[in-house]
Design a protein around this nucleic acid. Structure first.
Lengths: 233, 233
DNA sequence: TAGTGGTCTAGACCACCCT
DNA sequence: GGGTGGTCTAGACCACTAC
């Protein structure tokens, strides 16, 4: 348990964190400016700046030019979720991954899909559904629509050999996306696919991605009952 | 749509991102070192360093001393979730927030709680249950256990006036925490509290926090049916 | 307009770790 | 051993905005 050197940016950050946590600086109060803190810690202003900038990024400090730096009134906790490739997520659980391609068709999606993507309601898209297994137990159902125009060559990919999830991550960059987590009761189809009981609570992830404004893909992941998404704060 | 100046760290970062996205630099390949890039962009090495450091933090680059910088093989998408105070979450939806304190008792929690917190199984804790409303509709049920020893004065707080959620954020710093998201079928009690049908799928958040190794609180948030947790990538 | 944070520079030294 | 990234410094100029 070595205390970081006070003159390093980590050391300064640790000390600032301590003052915030122990209410030496109360929420909403003005804290000394960078120059004063640099003098106090005997380091360069740049060093203080880096320490404070990261705390501001984390939502603990509120910084404005001229107005100075204040301790945030409502420290929101910011959680970082790493969403890996499904195959890796299964393998990290020390389980054997495999998938079963259930469907691969080119057709016109329901209006709910095209409208969310901002596409013409008559656009033909590639529909791929696949069941991912962990040690031969159903792990999740991937129900995906892909924009053929934005993904050259996608129609000839063998999605039985590589999952759509993995192919896209390796071949289709995106700039923005929406993601939503929710809980749903399994309907008859999903229950049957996941070898579960109809009506059981299912953890669902909906994701849409765009590349520079061009729609790429829209996917719903339905996890097998009992799935928990864990992370550390 | 102004292009950021190439000499600024944002400009450099944008250009590096473009090279990664457009596969000019393929996954796993070695990219030029900081000095070479600084010369190419006509800026200081510090500027390149900042641009690359943030991309490495985001998981897009893999950097090691001496070995150099490589494009990450498995670009994991990293999602940042902001978890606000419940009252603010409700108010951000333009709804009126209020809560109804259902229970406040000091008692010995079930073993499942103490064991997860690492406490003696006979420790007395403060149990607070509260129903949060949005515009007079049940929004979520907060079921919380608090470590009395770690929270001086907690027994005299009026949790009908301020929610436990909000009081803790303002009064109890924490250093680490576990958080888990899952889906559960509403049992009879939860269904009744949330004015929902028994068995409906409920989005559940379990959170445990510690302060320097000392357990602080353990909470389960059960959201009303239909709740979606959204964020941008 | 003046105070504050945001950023850039050129240089330096160091820690790490591949070869 | 030596190349690379990690960090610190002192100074400078700029952008924003409260006053």
């Amino acid at each position: 348990m070595r205390e970081p050197d006070t003159k390093s940016w980590r050391g300064v950050q640790t000390e600032l964190l301590r003052r915030i946590n122990e209410r030496e600086w109360t929420p909403g109060s003005l804290v000394p400016n960078e120059i004063e803190l640099a003098q106090e810690f005997g380091c360069a202003r740049t060093t203080v700046n880096r320490a404070m900038r990261e705390l501001a990024d984390a939502g603990l400090l509120d910084r404005r030019r001229k107005a100075g730096t204040r301790v945030a009134l409502h420290p929101i906790s910011r959680i970082v979720l790493d969403i890996p490739i499904i195959r890796l997520e299964v393998e990290q659980r020390n389980a054997e991954w495999r998938q079963n391609l259930l469907e691969k068709t080119s057709c016109v999606p329901p209006a709910s899909i095209t409208s969310r993507l901002g596409l013409d309601s008559k656009t033909t898209m590639l529909h791929v559904r696949s069941l991912h297994y962990a040690d031969n137990h159903p792990f999740l159902h991937e129900d995906r629509w892909m924009n053929i125009d934005a993904l050259p060559g996608v129609e000839t990919v063998d999605f039985a050999a590589i999952s759509a999830n993995e192919w896209l991550i390796q071949n289709a960059p995106y700039t923005t996306g929406d993601i939503a987590f929710t809980a749903m009761n399994a309907n008859k189809d999903i229950a049957e696919i996941l070898e579960a009981v109809e009506g059981v609570a299912i953890f669902v992830v909906d994701r849409i991605t765009w590349n520079k404004g061009e729609p790429i893909t829209c996917v719903r992941l339905s996890y097998a009952p009992g799935y928990r998404m864990n992370t550390k704060i």
